[in-house]
Amino acid sequence: MSHSTHTPTSTEATAAWFDQTFAAAPLMAILRGTGVERAVALASTAWDLGIDSVEVTLQSDEDLQALREVARLGDERGKVVGAGTIVSARQIPLAAAAGARYLVSPGLDPRLVHAAGEHGIPMLPGVSTPSEVQLACDLGLTWMKAFPALWLGADWFRHIRGPFPQVRFVATGGMDATNARQFLDAGVRVVAVGSALEDPQQLELLAGLLHRTDI
């Protein structure tokens, strides 16, 4: 999968960038606190499976090293790697320098959205209420991370599509191969999985989701 190296400079360009990034697969991978070696192994598993996008969370110096190495390998394979758990503007230049192509935050902080824009990096903020979705829309965003998705439930997405039909959601939190289909059927565009990548039985189910033709 090829991706533009052009840095998004507007909310429209950012939306188009996420549209392209997530176009080929309804799944993404999240690597949290894995260490460098395990991060590389899990990222490779995800890419081999057909998952194009991998997020490495940033909560320690070792996470930054993992992001740098996964991003380097991702570039070699034409894959997009992002940095997650962005809760401070100080993390943004570090993530960018390590090779992150997009940022993910657990919550919605307009200051972080603006800071990401100043660095020319797409931001996927976390939302869990209609008010947060409305605020994100007001900031010009159309792609959002719904967190924690399992707690929200699949029906939340069915209801939220009424007033916000233009919003595209990435479901994160408690997602795996056993419940991903339920959320995709509810209108979620992308489901983010983590530990499922280390379970051979779940890998087979994830492979089936990646080859669905009715999404």
Rank of each mutant, 00 (worst) to 15 (best):
V127R: 14
D109H: 12
A116I: 01
V170K: 12
L103E: 09
A100Q: 09
I86H: 08
L152R: 12
K145M: 11
I92W: 00
L141K: 13
V104P: 07
A66T: 00
A83I: 03
P106E: 05
L73R: 15
A116D: 08
P148L: 07
L141V: 14
G84T: 09
T172N: 11
S60W: 12
G126T: 00
L112I: 10
A66D: 03
D61R: 08
M175V: 09
M144T: 05
R168P: 04
P163N: 09
A115P: 04
G74V: 06
G174N: 11
L64W: 06
V113K: 14
V170T: 10
A66S: 12
L124I: 03
F164E: 01
L150V: 11
D138M: 04
G107T: 15
V104A: 12
Q91C: 04
G126R: 01
G173C: 10
D109P: 00
D109C: 03
P163H: 06
V87K: 02
R90Q: 13
F183R: 12
Q182C: 01
L124Y: 06
I92L: 00
W156G: 10
P130R: 02
Q182Y: 00
E62R: 02
Q134H: 10
T178D: 01
F157E: 09
P165D: 14
L152P: 11
R68T: 05
A154R: 13
A95D: 00
P93C: 01
G117D: 04
P110M: 05
K145W: 10
F147W: 02
G120T: 01
L108V: 13
S105T: 03
L67R: 03
P163F: 02
A89N: 03
I160G: 06
A98N: 06
D61P: 00
F164H: 15
L64M: 10
L152D: 14
R158M: 13
Q65T: 04
P122D: 08
T178S: 09
A96S: 08
H119M: 09
A171K: 01
R181C: 00
A171S: 07
V113G: 09
G78P: 05
V133R: 12
A180C: 15
L108P: 14
L112H: 07
D75Q: 15
R101G: 15
D61F: 08
G117P: 03
M175P: 03
A146V: 00
T142M: 02
L108N: 12
R158K: 15
T85I: 06
L73A: 08
D185E: 12
A154M: 07
Q182I: 08
A95F: 01
A186Y: 04
Y102C: 12
R101T: 06
G117A: 09
